[in-house]
Simulated assay, not measured.
Amino acid sequence: MQRTERDHAMFEWLRVVRMADMDSLRWALGGLSGAGAPVSLRKAQQWVQRCAAVGLVDRARPTFRDGSIVWATHAAIGLSAPNLYRQTTRHEVAVAAVSARYLARGFTWRRDRKPANIRTDHQVDGVAVRGDHVELVEVELTPKTRSRYKQIMDNHSWRLEREGVSRVSYFCTADAARAVTGHADEHLFRTIRDRLQSVESFDVRGRWIADEDAPWASLPTAAELDGARPSE
């Protein structure tokens, strides 16, 4: 198999997110080809079949999922296969779903830096960047405790005010969205409150249910994100 530039980009993305379902692969393949929209399910399946035939990806369909989960093999990225039966699998697949949609909107995606202090610092699920716009991204499928939210919101405040972060976006289930909104209202100063959004995006099983444009509706235009001057 002759690897294309998009293949290399897909393997690097899978190195970061570790696993993804077919819907996420559709969005990532579309985003990394510059299409700005998901490819068809058939094209995503063909990509998986082509890579699987030469041992670069593998897939499985756990009983708790409606469809297959795909990951890059050791031959592709030098990492062992993920354990699909960990408690975090549902969350990791949901993070990939969000990440892939950022790719389709022209963002890059990377892991957040490791916490410097476990008691005061916080590592978000991913960082999306386009131009000078830096977005901290969280996927929240279950609400956290009140004290934990206080710590996290304090850290978001610090990074919004001092680390050049443009926005914090939470992609949540209904219960988690209500919790995040309430704690953001309580703990964030009003001068930065509008720079944290929580969007109901997943059902209780971790399946994407949001309108595809709603979470990004308030972003600047593509030209503004890329630093281009508006036409006169």
Rank of each mutant, 00 (worst) to 15 (best):
E138Y: 04
L41H: 15
V127I: 11
A228G: 13
S147R: 12
R130E: 02
R195G: 08
R86M: 09
R59C: 06
T89W: 00
R61A: 04
V54N: 10
V180M: 07
T88V: 04
G34Y: 08
E186A: 13
L14R: 07
V93F: 00
D175V: 02
Y170P: 02
A75I: 07
E140D: 02
E135N: 09
L188C: 09
D226M: 13
L225G: 12
C172N: 08
G182Y: 05
W158V: 08
S169V: 07
G106M: 00
D132S: 10
N117P: 06
G31K: 01
T221H: 10
T73S: 06
A128L: 06
R3L: 15
L41K: 08
A52E: 05
R167V: 15
A177L: 14
T4E: 13
A53Y: 07
S218W: 11
A217P: 09
G36D: 06
D23Y: 11
A76T: 02
S147N: 15
R193E: 01
R229F: 12
H122C: 06
R110F: 08
F189G: 11
V199E: 12
G67R: 05
L41F: 13
A179I: 05
P143T: 03
L56D: 06
R119V: 10
S218V: 14
Y85W: 15
S80H: 15
G106P: 01
V199L: 03
A128H: 08
W109F: 05
D7S: 11
W27D: 01
V124P: 01
E5T: 06
V127A: 10
A179M: 08
R193N: 07
F202N: 09
R205H: 08
Q45L: 14
A176D: 01
T108N: 13
D154I: 09
Q2W: 05
R148I: 14
I69N: 00
L56N: 00
V139M: 08
E212K: 15
A72M: 06
A104L: 01
A81R: 11
M19L: 12
A97M: 03
N83Y: 02
R26F: 13
G227T: 04
E212R: 12
R148C: 15
N155F: 03
S201L: 04
F202L: 07
W208S: 03
A76W: 13
R65N: 09
R193I: 15
R146K: 13
E138W: 10
A100R: 03
D194S: 14
V17R: 02
W13L: 00
A210Q: 08
P82L: 09
R59Q: 10
S33N: 12
V127G: 05
R162M: 14
P115H: 10
T73E: 12
E224W: 15
D175Y: 02
D21C: 01
L103R: 06
A174W: 13
Y170G: 06
A97H: 01
V48A: 03
E212A: 14
G126T: 14
G34E: 02
A60P: 03
G67Q: 13
H156F: 07
V54A: 13
D58W: 07
A53Q: 09
T191D: 15
V134W: 01
R65Y: 08
D23A: 07
V70P: 05
D185R: 12
S80M: 10
E200W: 06
